[in-house]
Amino acid sequence: MVIVNAATNLANFRDEIIEELLAEQYEVIIVSPAGKRLAPYKEKDGCQVVEIAVNRHGKNPIQEMTLFMKYFRVMKKYRPICVLTYTIKPNIYGGMAARFLRIPYLVNITGLGVVFDNRNMLQKTIVMLYRRVMKHATCVFFQNKTNRSTFIRLGIDFPCSEIIPGSGVNLDINALETYPAENEPVRFLFVARIMKDKGINEYVAAAKVIRKKYPNVEFHVIGNCEYGYEEKVAKWAKEGHIIYHGAQPDVHMFMKKSHALIHPSFYMEGMSNVCLEAAATGRPVLTTNWLGCKETVDDGRTGFVFEPRNVASLVNIITKFIELPYEEKVIMGQKGRKKMESQFDRQIVVESYMKEINRLADY
């Protein structure tokens, strides 16, 4: 059983493991909120889909208990060999349900999120719940060493853990693309949920500074607006600071046309998927010296690292990149692709999971 908090999470990052499970003759039960991206799984032989809504930002105790009970009932009905959970609510409520039913469960810490960045009652509650769930997990997959160290520091015990390269990157879907022509205007790309912690404010502030000196440079933005950013983004686009494309199902086409990705996040990432995808496409990555971002770049070789929440640092790095000779930009992107091939191939993640699942099946 695979439990996720969004259909897009499933299709974008978990598809390869589901395909591998089906290829090895496992039956797969997918538990996910409704979404268009579920349609292909409903048609696959050996695959069943159970739609359970998840309010990702909800804090209503009754709603949270209802989610736990829904996970409990679906596990009790199907009694899977094991349960795979991703993101915080499936991890906690799915893990609790599996524990009560004595079903093995594999937990993926996809990132700590803003909750672990704020010491408040919500953080204390989540830490308490994680302590109860993690100590009974069959294995906990961390996407970086710092997240694991944070769990240990907070007294969240787990019997077994493994560091995996984020969600990995599909090197076929994110194919290496020819770099834009030398005579084209430099195009930067921001791809993320549009919210403060993803660094959108710093990105736009830097764009305003850079375009005064380099008026032909373009700053593109892709993503859903959160936390009331709709009006701000519309204003920025109208003033010409950014080019906003909304949410896009095919980000790769925009990656292909860009000269570099800028990911100014200071969100508690597990491993930034967009950085991996950009590097796999052969695009240099400019990102923060921040957990889950800095690991995706070899500074000065496959991209550049700048300080988070620091517009001056970002402006300096953007200027440095713009003034690089064209050939060096191309080589930087090619080195990024090689880094993805050697360190972040999604097949590495699939093999880690299959090792644990096959062990449980044999047992």
Score class of each variant (00 low, 15 high):
191 V>E: 08
191 V>K: 00
192 A>D: 11
193 R>G: 07
193 R>L: 08
193 R>K: 13
196 K>L: 12
199 G>M: 13
199 G>V: 03
199 G>F: 03
200 I>A: 07
200 I>Q: 10
200 I>D: 00
200 I>T: 11
201 N>L: 12
202 E>V: 06
202 E>R: 12
203 Y>S: 03
203 Y>D: 03
204 V>C: 02
205 A>Y: 02
205 A>N: 15
206 A>Q: 09
207 A>I: 02
208 K>M: 12
208 K>E: 14
208 K>A: 13
211 R>K: 15
212 K>H: 13
213 K>V: 11
213 K>Y: 13
214 Y>T: 06
215 P>D: 11
216 N>H: 15
216 N>Y: 14
219 F>H: 05
220 H>D: 09
222 I>G: 02
223 G>P: 07
225 C>H: 01
228 G>A: 05
230 E>I: 04
230 E>Q: 10
231 E>K: 08
232 K>W: 01
232 K>D: 09
232 K>L: 08
234 A>T: 06
235 K>A: 04
237 A>S: 02
237 A>Q: 03
242 I>H: 01
243 I>M: 10
244 Y>P: 01
244 Y>H: 03
244 Y>V: 01
245 H>N: 02
247 A>V: 03
248 Q>M: 12
250 D>N: 15
250 D>H: 06
250 D>K: 04
251 V>K: 05
252 H>Y: 10
255 M>D: 03
255 M>S: 00
255 M>L: 14
257 K>R: 11
258 S>V: 05
259 H>S: 12
260 A>S: 07
260 A>V: 06
261 L>N: 03
262 I>T: 06
265 S>E: 12
266 F>L: 10
267 Y>Q: 11
267 Y>T: 13
269 E>L: 10
269 E>A: 09
273 N>K: 13
275 C>H: 09
275 C>I: 08
276 L>F: 10
277 E>V: 06
278 A>R: 07
278 A>F: 06
278 A>Q: 06
281 T>G: 10
285 V>A: 02
285 V>R: 06
288 T>M: 11
290 W>R: 12
290 W>K: 10
292 G>E: 14
294 K>H: 14
294 K>D: 14
294 K>R: 15
295 E>H: 10
296 T>K: 13
297 V>N: 07
297 V>H: 07
297 V>I: 09
297 V>G: 05
297 V>R: 01
298 D>Q: 07
299 D>R: 08
300 G>N: 09
303 G>V: 09
305 V>G: 04
305 V>D: 04
306 F>Q: 08
306 F>E: 07
306 F>G: 08
307 E>W: 12
308 P>H: 07
308 P>C: 10
310 N>P: 10
310 N>A: 14
310 N>F: 13
311 V>M: 11
314 L>M: 15
315 V>H: 13
316 N>E: 15
316 N>G: 08
318 I>Y: 07
318 I>S: 07
318 I>V: 15
320 K>T: 13
321 F>V: 05
322 I>P: 05
323 E>Q: 13
325 P>Q: 00
325 P>H: 00
325 P>R: 00
326 Y>L: 00
326 Y>M: 00
326 Y>V: 02
327 E>K: 09
329 K>C: 00
329 K>E: 04
